[in-house]
Design a protein around this nucleic acid. Structure first.
Lengths: 337, 337
DNA sequence: AACATCTTGTCAATCGATTGCAAAAAGTGT
DNA sequence: ACACTTTTTGCAATCGATTGACAAGATGTT
């Protein structure tokens, strides 16, 4: 039960494989007489002919494949961005559709290196990384010599890649400003792992505004090992041990915020009365909670659209003069602060 | 800056491409003299040679690629299963590593069809579907004539595919039994969309035990449009309108349960005093909540391992006499019930 | 009628690695 | 030194689609 290939189909129709190829293609279809083209398309459809994309890739040098690196497949924001990027990439219905090769790094530089090699071996047309850390700089630069590499969500300090980012610093600043306006005097951050620039920038923006508006950030820094609700939950003890006690918390993402809130509830503390909290990302969760979570809305649509455009343009023309962009998030104030 | 290919590498070393190919392969490396082999491997490493897998795929007829269909990339359980399957598939370090092609169907039969065609065009060695609904039966059967198709998590009634499933019916039954033991007399389910066999079976198992233990299931059926917390939240009004009022709820997954709980909290109702709740899947969330959620632990490890084994064996030998298996979940009683 | 132009289709090379077959080289025994 | 086995290497076909070059035929122009 071998698959039907183009040669056989051509034979059956009494034409050359070249004619079949052109008739079925998007861009060269005009080179074959309308009648023949239709006949071939009919027959191909009827016979269930499916072109072999590995052969096509080999010959063309283009795979219509894009590798995408993400640190954690469980993160809603990453997934939203991936979805949206590929929605934009496939929206151009003239171009053949692009298959994403999705891979998870879990922030291991080794895994990243391996995965990038795999991508290149499979001849992806471009690589999008939502997972870059500084440890990956060299690998990504190497890769960029062969295919376009686009960064989204996470930047790498000191390396210039085409990128589509959220202005995390501005986001952090917004939260601090909000706290200032609500009259909080003593505040604290529950910080995500400083591995990725994301969390560093959120912290930075927050601290800058605190300093300028003379809000006191508690000297004790609270870091969660991972940006998850379980880790967030575990930080409450440390938070409560801080003296003087903060009245508002900036959690670096919604999962961390949820963890803190649940731990608080467990102890009978109320939010926002006992402790105000703001998260980051505006995930589904933040809307569900009985005390809806104040948070910073991530500009998923803009980031994804720009990342998609960068990829599309760079694939079409590797020397395209790209423009990296930073999109501003927006504060959403709900009941938790 | 064209990539180095095997021909050039061979030329540089003064050997034939065939020798290079064999030296770098896993299975044929013994055919080349140890000294030559080492020399070639060194040179390949130094030159940063990376074999072109599309060419290799074309020639071999094997892509070392597996297509995986999932209905929703935002679902933690699906993601866990995907991760675990590929961990098992790659564990065999003798075999070359397998690249997953992950695609999301969102339960649209059209999308499923398109994605399967893409998989086949890209010559995947097998397809794993975690997303099958009855609407996909024909498409999957077609696909199965070309490559092994393995089902995980979701079965299709009336079609025989190699599969690795959770005994959802048993899971539902466990919840009902638990309610009976706790003395609940009137209970209700918050059901997921009956599109997938999963939810049907959970409902069935629950109802069967209710009937046999003479617990009353409220005549009104509650269906959530999607198995998400937002949808779960919206069901509370309907739940409270039921008379006589149920004292315990079986939510078909943890997200639905969370939605109900948050809606309850919003109204000042307490869990489990006012309404006991059990979810399904034992997601991270269920552990975080201040009132930890009773739930049914999904046998992720077993399902994934078996799915991985089916795939591995069927790729090695398409006529492998497979055994479909059903793994039993287990009830985890926490504070919510 | 002669010639240019356009359409349609064929031929054959090509992408890069793999592998069956056979030749060359090395090793063994007498 | 010779016959013979075993190891190592090279040759060339192959996987399936794409595409530049070109030929044959159709159409138009003067």
């Amino acid at each position: 039960m071998a698959r039907l290939n183009m040669r056989e189909l051509a034979l059956k129709l009494g034409v050359d494989r070249a004619t079949v190829s052109r008739a079925l293609s998007n861009d060269k279809a005009h080179l074959v007489a309308p009648a023949t083209r239709e006949r071939i398309r009919q027959a191909a459809g009827a016979a269930g002919y499916r072109p072999d994309l590995t052969a096509a890739t080999l010959r063309r040098g283009r795979s219509h494949t894009v590798g995408i690196l993400v640190s954690d497949l469980g993160n809603e924001t990453f997934i939203d961005v991936i979805r949206t990027i590929f929605r934009h990439l496939d929206a151009r219905s003239d171009a053949p559709s692009i298959t994403p090769l999705i891979a998870e790094t879990l922030d291991h530089p080794d895994a990243t290196r391996r995965l990038i090699h795999t991508f290149l071996s499979r001849r992806v047309d471009a690589i999008i990384s939502l997972a870059s850390t500084e440890a990956d700089t060299a690998i990504l630069q190497d890769a960029a010599r062969e295919v376009p590499v686009v960064l989204a969500i996470r930047a790498i300090a000191g390396a210039v890649f085409p990128s589509a980012l959220c202005d995390d610093r501005a986001g952090g600043a917004m939260v601090a400003t909000h706290f200032a306006e609500r009259g909080h005097k003593i505040v604290c951050q529950v910080q995500g792992p400083p591995l990725s620039a994301t969390f560093k920038n959120r912290a930075l923006g927050f601290s800058e505004v605190c300093a300028s508006r003379s809000i006191v950030e508690t000297p004790q820094r609270i870091f969660a090992e991972t940006a998850t609700s379980a880790a967030g939950k575990r930080t409450l003890d440390a938070l409560l041990a801080i003296s003087p006690r903060p009245t508002a918390i900036f959690a670096h993402n919604d999962a961390l915020a949820l963890g803190v809130i649940e731990a608080m509830r467990h102890r009978g503390l109320r939010c926002p009365e006992d402790l105000a909290i703001v998260g980051f990302n505006n995930t589904q969760l933040s809307r569900i909670l009985a005390v809806p979570l104040s948070t910073v809305d991530y500009p998923v649509e803009e980031v994804s659209r720009h990342a998609g455009e960068l990829v599309r343009n760079l694939i079409a023309d590797p020397s395209y003069r790209f423009e990296s962009r930073l999109f501003t998030p927006s504060l959403i104030v709900r009941a938790s602060s």
